[in-house]
Computed example of a mutant assay.
Amino acid sequence: MTNSVSLDRFDHALLALVQRNNQTPARILAEQVGLSESAVLRRLRQLRRTGVIAADIAVVRPALIGLPLTVHVLVSLERESAAELDAFNRKIRSRSEVRQAWYVTGEADFVLHLQLSGMEAYDTFAREVFHDDPNVKAFRTIVAMREVVSQVNARGLSTSE
């Protein structure tokens, strides 16, 4: 279980800024939150050390690299023993199409976020991952027509706008 970290208003302000652009120089962050540059750097190091900032990444627009199709899939399994969950976890971790996956409660056992080149690629994925697995009871596909809001987009707008 993860312990929560105590954050003050400066930490929250820094997190909001670096989530929009983690390349912003400490000097500018300092001006925007009302701290010294050294205090900002110290706080950012602490946020990384405690795992609050889990990674510094580049956000790539999937369509520009040949993956314009976003699909979410609700997957229900027949059985959820530890061994069967581990096997399904290994399978979806090994697939490059899977960008995110959650083990969830409710009508489905997993929610998958996929990025694919098109419906033919999704058909191949579904056959290999779902149809060929006797432990997959059912899956429901939701095709995204366009992104409306994303936390990873600085303006909160669709990457297509």
Rank of each mutant, 00 (worst) to 15 (best):
S4D: 07
V5Y: 08
L7H: 04
F10M: 09
Q19D: 06
N21S: 10
Q23A: 11
P25A: 09
R27K: 15
E31H: 08
Q32C: 02
Q32H: 13
V33M: 09
G34H: 07
G34F: 05
S36N: 11
S38Q: 14
A39R: 14
A39S: 15
V40L: 10
R42Q: 15
R43D: 09
R43E: 11
R48M: 04
R48F: 03
R49E: 14
V52F: 11
I53R: 14
D56M: 03
P62K: 00
I65A: 00
P68D: 01
T70S: 13
L74T: 00
S76Y: 04
S76C: 05
E78Y: 10
R79C: 06
R79L: 11
R79P: 02
E80G: 07
S81M: 02
A82T: 13
A83I: 11
F88G: 02
F88M: 06
R90S: 10
K91G: 00
R95I: 01
R95A: 04
R95T: 01
S96P: 14
E97C: 00
R99S: 06
R99Y: 01
R99H: 08
A101S: 15
D109S: 11
H113D: 11
L114K: 07
Q115I: 00
Q115D: 08
L116V: 00
M119A: 04
M119I: 02
A121E: 06
T124E: 13
T124P: 01
F125R: 08
R127W: 09
R127Y: 12
E128S: 05
H131W: 07
H131I: 02
D132V: 00
D132M: 06
N135T: 06
R140F: 07
R140A: 07
R140L: 09
T141P: 12
M145W: 11
M145V: 05
R146V: 03
E147G: 11
E147A: 08
V149T: 10
V152K: 13
N153Q: 14
A154Y: 09
A154D: 08
R155N: 10
G156T: 07
G156A: 08
L157M: 15
S158Y: 13
S160F: 04
